[in-house]
């Protein structure tokens, strides 16, 4: 219900909010999903109007005061899609976002766990397994700052986020189709526990801190998929000479047949076959087919063309291929010059 519109209405209300210091005002300006900032004081005074013996009178009640204390909450969100890996690869990263969903500033410790139930293999955390995604690239790069527990634990203001990479090596024993999980956990350094647990005086500015619905600790699990795809490409030729024989003489036609097949688990994405026309031969116009369907030579919406921007090359876009797609057959003719 904390919509922008509502906030706008709120701002014009008789808001009995007292801000103790300028710093508080700065925090309240950024308050959003995390809720009313720590230290906000909400006062309430009721007014009574009445007539007594014909005389109108207005009275005020006493004023009640409540102080907003710190609620500790954190959320960890996986950002990476399933990461495709091969056996023996090292330093493969998963990206997470840690969000302080409490209403005060909080410091969080970070931990990695790659020994999880429900997967096929355990990724091996790298020697330095947690990094800040300092360059914002979403992947591990030189310049991403390593995380060290107790040294550079992230300090997040209410609603603030930080992008974290966890980094694993892939064992050599895995096979195609294997899945491995790895988990990032962020824990409030003030404390964690069942919602409602109080930490007296440990909130921002010495107010109490209370564990919120997240328990002050959150985890996200990312996934590695072993996808070392094996592709078989076989090219064969049949020569037909002008005399009805099979001699590779000038004027003879060579029919090339190229078959492409995925022979392992996994999927190749946006596969493209590029086959240059051999020297001393010339492509036979309008001779190319894909799985026995004619494909025009022009660069257009169909799956292929003759690319003449460099040496003439037959180009065929085969798309995403897996074992289930079976054999893709590309056929085209050239004539011997």
């Amino acid at each position: 219900m904390n919509t922008a519109n509502h906030r706008f209405v709120s701002a014009s209300r008789w808001a009995h909010r007292l801000s103790c210091a300028g710093a508080l005002l700065a925090i309240s300006a950024t308050a959003g999903a995390a809720g009313t900032p720590v230290g906000t004081i909400i006062q309430n005074t009721a007014t009574v109007d009445f007539d007594l013996a014909g005389t109108p009178i207005t009275l005020q009640s006493n004023t009640t005061t409540i102080t907003v204390v710190e609620r500790i909450d954190v959320v960890v969100t996986l950002q990476s899609p399933q990461v495709l890996v091969a056996p023996n690869e090292s330093d493969r990263a998963l990206l997470f976002t840690v969000t302080n969903t409490g209403n005060g500033s909080e410091t969080f410790s970070l931990a990695i766990d790659s020994i999880l139930a429900g997967d096929d293999f355990n990724p091996t955390p790298s020697a330095t397994p947690i990094y800040f995604d300092t360059d914002g690239s979403g992947d591990l790069n030189v310049g991403d700052q390593p995380y060290t527990l107790g040294v550079n634990d992230p300090v997040l203001a209410a609603d603030a986020t930080v992008d974290i990479l966890i980094v694993n090596d892939i064992p050599g024993t895995v096979v195609n189709g294997n899945i491995g999980f790895s988990q990032l956990t962020a824990s409030s350094l003030t404390g964690t526990g069942t919602p409602g647990t109080e930490f007296a005086g440990l909130g921002d500015g010495g107010v109490d801190a209370v564990i919120g619905t997240t328990g002050g600790e959150a985890s996200g699990i990312g996934e590695y998929l072993v996808s070392d795809v094996a592709v078989s490409v076989v090219k064969s030729q049949v020569v037909t000479d002008p005399n009805g024989g099979t001699q590779p003489i000038p004027g003879a036609t060579i029919t090339y047949t190229v078959t492409v097949e995925v022979t392992s688990a996994g999927t190749t994405t946006a596969s493209v076959l590029r086959d240059p026309i051999p020297v001393y031969t010339t492509y036979v116009a309008n001779s190319m087919t894909l799985n026995a369907v004619a494909i025009s030579d022009a660069i257009d919406a169909d799956a292929g063309e003759l690319d003449t921007s460099g040496p003439a090359t037959v180009v065929m876009r085969l798309g995403d291929l897996s074992q289930a797609d079976g054999v893709q057959t590309v056929v085209f003719d050239v004539r011997i010059d």
Binding site: M1, H6, S10, A11, R13, W14, A15, H16, R17, T36, T40, I42, Q43, N44, T45, A46, T47, V48, D49, F50, D51, L52, A53, P56, V68
Partner: peptide, 17 residues
């Protein structure tokens, strides 16, 4: 005396819903 036309008015702080 009896009090007549009694009206209680209470604001709702902007931080409260």
């Amino acid at each position: 005396e009896p009090a007549e036309n009694v009206v209680i008015t209470n604001p709702i702080s902007g931080d409260l819903m």
